[in-house]
């Protein structure tokens, strides 16, 4: 399966200690595709990284995946249950 959601999921599962808690949703808001990444509260630091560098990398790659489908992507990182 290919798509922005899948790319973010593969990356987040590699970065986290609890990959089974990773959940990614995709929704359309006018021109913008919103990707919400939910991770375990203990993994938030892992996906954000020092000075937000990992979060920036995830946003870059989410945009790259979106570029292929002509989508403008916004990535939000959230705490899962």
């Amino acid at each position: 399966m290919a798509g922005v959601r899948e790319v973010v999921e593969v990356l987040a599962k590699a970065l986290t200690d609890r990959p089974d808690d990773v959940r990614v949703t995709e929704s359309q808001h006018k021109h913008v595709t919103l990707i919400e990444l939910f991770v375990s509260p203990t993994d938030i630091g892992k996906v954000i990284g020092k000075q937000g560098r990992t979060a920036a990398a995830l946003r870059t790659l989410a945009s790259t995946a979106g570029e292929r489908e002509g989508k403008q992507v916004t990535l939000e990182i959230r705490e899962g249950r």
Partner: peptide, 14 residues
């Protein structure tokens, strides 16, 4: 840029 981002994720993960 995407390649740099991918390198960063690899560094952090592995």
């Amino acid at each position: 840029e995407p390649l740099k981002a991918l390198q960063h994720v690899v560094d952090m993960s592995f």
